[in-house]
């Protein structure tokens, strides 16, 4: 799959994740931390089924390595919590995530977001995430983008603090990507990646 600007985007992904991770957690502040947390990994298949539905991309097309190998059924099957009883003899999901699991998860999140943004650029009339600003990108544009992302990926509204944090992040990224339509699409991709790779998106 050809993804325009991917290399430039990759250099910014860590920045995005670091900047926005606290924002995702902040919504829990009203309650004390669980004394005996039981969160579960969503696993690659459930994760892609969710994103397929919410990004309106067929499940079989949403994430393919080398444009051929399904990310959860083939490429990263075991490291993303799947099983392979027939060939690899892995009968049950691994109890512990592997070292490669977070790398694979980030890679999947980035590919899915890039896939959706590329579709939005190709067909603006059917765009879901990336909608260029009519003029210079402003706070209203950033808030609208934030709302679309939280709605689509986390399936809830963003809190005021989360909108502020995302707006600050997008403003900062703009210094690197510029204000052009391409720059805005890269901002959208990075913001999508930040939420799609968040703990809230990966665990339940």
């Amino acid at each position: 799959m050809r993804m325009p600007g991917l290399f430039a985007v990759l250099t910014l992904t860590l920045v995005a994740a670091a900047a926005l991770a606290p924002a995702v957690v902040s919504a829990q502040e009203a309650a004390p931390a669980s004394t005996d947390p039981r969160i579960k990994f969503k696993d690659g298949e459930r994760y892609l089924r969710d994103l397929s539905e919410t990004f309106e991309i067929p499940r079989d097309e949403i994430c393919l390595e080398l444009s051929r190998y399904d990310c959860s059924k083939k490429s990263f099957r075991i490291v993303l919590g799947g099983v392979d009883p027939y060939d690899a003899r892995v009968m049950q999901p691994l109890d512990q995530a592997t070292l490669a699991s977070p790398i694979a998860f980030d890679r999947v999140a980035l590919q899915v977001c890039a896939n959706r943004v590329a579709k939005d650029r190709a067909d603006p009339a059917k765009a879901l995430l990336f909608k260029p600003a009519s003029g210079r990108p402003d706070r209203a544009w950033r808030d609208a983008l934030t709302d679309r992302l939280y709605d689509r990926i986390l399936r809830r509204d963003a809190s005021v603090a989360e909108r502020d944090r995302m707006a600050a992040f997008l403003e900062g990224v703009e210094g690197r990507t510029g204000r052009s339509a391409r720059g805005q699409s890269e901002q959208t991709l990075l913001a999508c990646f930040a939420l799609a790779s968040s703990a809230e998106a990966a665990f339940y």
């Binding site: 309650a31 004390p32 931390a33 669980s34 004394t35």
Partner: peptide, 8 residues
């Protein structure tokens, strides 16, 4: 009980 999740 008042939070987003009831962790208790």
């Amino acid at each position: 009980a008042a939070g987003r999740w009831n962790t208790c």
